[in-house]
Simulated scan of single mutants.
Amino acid sequence: MLRQPGSPFHQILEFHSQAQENHAVIHAQLSELVDYIHRGRADKKGEISGSRGPQQPAGTQISGSAVTPSFEQRVEMAKRRLVQTVINTDAATRESQEAAERDRERRRKEAQSLKRRRRD
């Protein structure tokens, strides 16, 4: 009687199950991030090394007319998004640093040019 869908007991079980899935996803993302951080600089530039190759996720679950990714597929997608976010952030940081360096160099040249004009 208490274990029917919608009952408090059933809601607690659903919440617990979702919490476990969330924990697994976060753990997988963190593991992938740690792996990424520990890879060499060449990997961070997009050159993939190693013999693992792309991992094929498990099959999909079909519910009604929509195709729902399995838990394993959702974990893989989350890991890919996390790694891509880190790669994009690295690239943006590098571009920002390069732009700042170009700006400093431009200002240095302008200052030298002004000094020369003042001497003349």
Score class of each variant (00 low, 15 high):
residue 50 G to P: 00
residue 99 A to K: 12
residue 40 G to V: 06
residue 71 F to Q: 03
residue 91 A to K: 14
residue 46 G to F: 03
residue 107 R to I: 04
residue 55 Q to D: 10
residue 50 G to T: 03
residue 35 D to G: 08
residue 89 T to H: 08
residue 2 L to V: 14
residue 106 R to V: 06
residue 50 G to W: 00
residue 50 G to Y: 02
residue 117 R to S: 07
residue 79 K to H: 04
residue 114 L to S: 14
residue 20 Q to T: 14
residue 23 H to N: 11
residue 82 L to E: 11
residue 74 R to T: 01
residue 33 L to W: 05
residue 92 A to S: 12
residue 86 V to E: 05
residue 111 A to L: 07
residue 99 A to R: 12
residue 4 Q to V: 15
residue 1 M to C: 13
residue 106 R to G: 04
residue 37 I to W: 06
residue 106 R to L: 09
residue 65 S to P: 03
residue 16 H to T: 15
residue 50 G to H: 01
residue 20 Q to D: 12
residue 78 A to R: 00
residue 43 D to W: 14
residue 73 Q to F: 04
residue 52 R to C: 05
residue 106 R to H: 05
residue 94 R to Y: 11
residue 84 Q to V: 04
residue 85 T to A: 15
residue 118 R to S: 09
residue 56 Q to I: 15
residue 70 S to I: 04
residue 90 D to P: 01
residue 46 G to K: 01
residue 74 R to H: 01
residue 69 P to S: 00
residue 1 M to L: 12
residue 11 Q to E: 09
residue 81 R to A: 03
residue 78 A to T: 00
residue 98 E to H: 10
residue 12 I to K: 09
residue 120 D to W: 09
residue 38 H to A: 11
residue 28 A to I: 02
residue 74 R to C: 00
residue 82 L to Q: 13
residue 58 A to L: 10
residue 70 S to L: 03
residue 116 R to A: 13
residue 101 E to F: 08
residue 93 T to L: 14
residue 25 V to I: 10
residue 76 E to I: 05
residue 59 G to V: 13
residue 59 G to S: 13
residue 48 I to N: 09
residue 96 S to Q: 12
residue 5 P to D: 00
residue 47 E to D: 12
residue 103 D to F: 08
residue 98 E to C: 07
residue 55 Q to A: 08
residue 26 I to P: 05
residue 119 R to N: 07
residue 53 G to L: 02
residue 40 G to C: 04
residue 67 V to E: 07
residue 91 A to H: 13
residue 31 S to T: 15
residue 116 R to D: 15
residue 15 F to R: 07
residue 103 D to I: 05
residue 6 G to W: 00
residue 4 Q to F: 14
residue 77 M to N: 15
residue 75 V to Q: 00
residue 52 R to M: 09
residue 110 E to M: 07
residue 94 R to A: 15
residue 79 K to S: 00
residue 17 S to V: 05
residue 101 E to A: 13
residue 44 K to E: 07
residue 14 E to G: 02
residue 49 S to Q: 10
residue 39 R to Q: 08
residue 67 V to W: 00
residue 46 G to C: 02
residue 35 D to P: 03
residue 8 P to I: 01
residue 45 K to W: 10
residue 59 G to T: 08
residue 118 R to N: 09
residue 60 T to Y: 08
residue 79 K to Y: 02
residue 11 Q to T: 05
residue 27 H to R: 15
residue 19 A to Y: 04
residue 101 E to C: 04
residue 10 H to C: 08
residue 40 G to R: 08
residue 90 D to Q: 06
residue 59 G to W: 06
residue 21 E to Y: 09
residue 8 P to E: 05
residue 63 S to C: 06
residue 39 R to E: 07
residue 31 S to M: 10
residue 119 R to T: 14
residue 11 Q to K: 14
residue 31 S to P: 06
